[in-house]
Design a protein around this nucleic acid. Structure first.
Lengths: 126, 126
DNA sequence: TTGACATATTCCTATATCGGAATATATTAA
DNA sequence: TTAATATATTCCGATATAGGAATATGTCAA
């Protein structure tokens, strides 16, 4: 098997940096393709292809307005990514707590016992 | 140019579903490779390769303990993803607000003027 | 030293990608 | 209708993937 298709889910679609930029642009308000082309300095076919990927995974929608096609992001489609990353939030805030404890311990001259654990050790190339 | 390398950043590394599962497993606590192999029912080489990718982008770290190599996730490395998704949070909470307004308007018998905007229209294949 | 265990790496193949160039399609204006 | 505008699609090539099979590397025990 090869790598999963970019259109298989939002995670894959969003892995491409240009597509993230496009989503950013469109999140402000809907825009025609040509405006994305100009602002991001990409070729028109390239932008159309990226938009096609984003549309297939539900990250953007389009509507026609006279000659132009206006795209806009569908923020809800980003939520699964947000929720996934969120499950790790407690671990890095944990880290912050330890930093805080360390600072407090230093200030009071007392060592917090949560400060150093065996797996805190820096690992060289194993 | 082809698709960006899976090792180019956390976004690309995390696009692969198995790697997300591995991160989940290792976020609880460090584990040897063999345990991942058993729990996720993947081949040992496959797991080693995924871990290699995750290590190259800083999402996991490893240390040796006798014969085994114990891996653990580096939650901070997921933060950039979290921050990026977060920039869209206001838009979907916006959406929630509109739902709320709609409910309140219905309850009071008054139409809120924020309820329907032109781009709310459902778009057929354009 | 030899062997067993744990993990990493190499070689292979089928499959998708992204960008560029060229072209097709669709909508409106004259 | 014809021309101009706006966007989409197709064809191409170079590149990278993920998994499987086989093998290499590294660590420990006897």
């Amino acid at each position: 098997m090869a790598r999963a298709a970019t259109t298989s889910d939002a995670f894959n679609a969003v892995a491409e940096p240009r597509r993230r930029e496009i989503l950013r642009l469109l999140s402000e308000h809907e825009r025609p393709v040509g405006e994305i082309v100009i602002r991001l300095r990409l070729s028109q076919p390239s932008v159309s292809k990226h938009l096609s990927v984003l549309r297939q995974v539900g990250l953007v929608r389009a509507r026609r307005e006279r000659r132009q096609i206006l795209y806009r992001t569908v923020p809800q489609a980003i939520r699964p990514l947000h929720e996934w990353t969120k499950t790790f939030e407690k671990y890095w805030s944990h880290q912050l707590n330890r930093v805080k404890e360390r600072a407090e311990a230093k200030a009071s001259g007392i060592q917090a016992n949560t400060m150093r654990r065996s797996d805190d050790r820096e690992d060289g190339e194993p």
